[in-house]
Amino acid sequence: MSNWFGIKIAGPSNGSTEGPTFQELWRYRYQKSIHLLERYRSASAKYRHLKQIKKKIGNRPLIAIILSEQMGDIIACEPIAREVRQRHPDGYIIWVVREPFAELVKYNPNLDEYLVEKCPGERVQLLQSGIYDKVYNMHISHRKCKYCPEDPINPTADAIGLTFDNYYHRGDLLYIFSQAAGLPAMTAEPKMYILESVRQKIAGLQLPAGPIVIHCQSSHILRDWPADNWNKLVRWLIATYPYPIIEVGLAPTVTEPNPQFRSLCGQLSLLETAEVIRQARLFIGIDSGPAHMANATGVDAILLLGKLFDFVDYLPYSGRYKRGEGVTILNDFGHPCAELPYAWVQDAVQQRLGQPKLV
């Protein structure tokens, strides 16, 4: 049987202990109601704000670039903002983004503004309002909000057969999403726009010059390499090379107490993380947002990839890394990143940094 908001629950006479409890169902019902109320308020406020912008800009077109989430996706698709600005030099261009990633577009000189998206349902509501004069939507269809009834559709992506099951078979993220937005397939270099105030803040940390920067954990466990391997690698780096080692990311993986190693995990904003990576002599990491930062800031890198769902031979990066410049990409095809041999990473480091010196 099902309750009124569509969650299946076990009948009282079947003795089943599986499925959500009565308390969980009512908690979901409450959270859904609150979310929908806040969403409609948020969408109405944003619609009024956009109407005021249209009144202010007169005949200039109001243009939306929509790619609201995933750090790496947004960094990889930065060239879209430049392309849209070139196509619409007089346009008032807004990038629609989720709050955690707003910093990545906030200071882009090709944009007039950014708009914080509450959820995909709100996005659908604003698109259906017709408030935008032109839309470049990079999202693939059917990534829904868990509370909203709307199913986000991107007809342009649908027309070229782009789905979550095949997108990485088509090419790198910029190449894919530029086509989903209705633009020609793009292969440009991504850029990071790092404020001088951010650079000064990182300078104030007095980090040692020319570090090896590592990033060990992604938003998805299938992309990760074992913590034991990272700790082993850091111990070997300390014993072999004189360079300082800095870990970045949300949560630390390495537990090495040596003063040559420093963890900045959980201490930096997105742009501050990008600035630390920009100063690195070498970045070592898994497929993640910081890896895209390394690509966008021109840093040499060793990247650890592996099978991701049904994607075996895939490459998320455009620009330098796509051309194989300044990067070593390790992938034991058909195996997840967790099974990537430790020796491969150590050998790649030696090729990038030179043979170790005896100490």
Rank of each mutant, 00 (worst) to 15 (best):
Y136C: 00
Y136F: 02
Y136N: 02
N137Q: 01
N137H: 04
N137S: 13
M138I: 10
M138N: 15
M138R: 07
H139M: 10
H139S: 07
H139G: 00
H139A: 02
I140H: 05
I140C: 00
I140A: 00
I140G: 01
S141I: 08
S141D: 10
S141Y: 00
H142E: 10
H142L: 09
R143T: 12
R143P: 12
R143D: 06
R143H: 13
R143M: 15
R143A: 02
K144T: 15
K144G: 10
C145I: 06
C145R: 03
K146N: 15
Y147K: 00
Y147R: 10
Y147W: 06
C148D: 12
C148F: 08
C148N: 08
C148T: 11
P149I: 06
P149F: 08
P149M: 04
P149V: 03
E150R: 14
E150Q: 11
E150Y: 10
E150M: 10
E150H: 06
D151G: 08
D151C: 11
P152K: 01
P152F: 00
P152N: 00
P152H: 04
P152T: 01
I153L: 07
I153F: 10
I153A: 12
I153G: 14
N154T: 14
N154E: 05
N154H: 04
P155S: 08
P155Q: 03
T156H: 03
A157C: 03
A157H: 09
D158M: 04
D158C: 14
A159I: 07
A159Q: 06
A159G: 13
A159L: 11
I160S: 11
I160N: 08
I160P: 09
G161F: 08
L162C: 12
F164R: 12
F164I: 12
D165V: 02
D165C: 09
D165N: 02
N166M: 05
N166C: 00
N166I: 00
Y167T: 06
Y167R: 03
Y167I: 10
Y167Q: 08
Y168I: 04
Y168Q: 03
Y168E: 02
H169W: 10
R170D: 12
R170G: 02
R170S: 10
R170T: 09
R170L: 06
G171F: 07
G171Q: 06
G171T: 07
G171I: 10
D172G: 05
L173M: 08
L173E: 11
L174K: 03
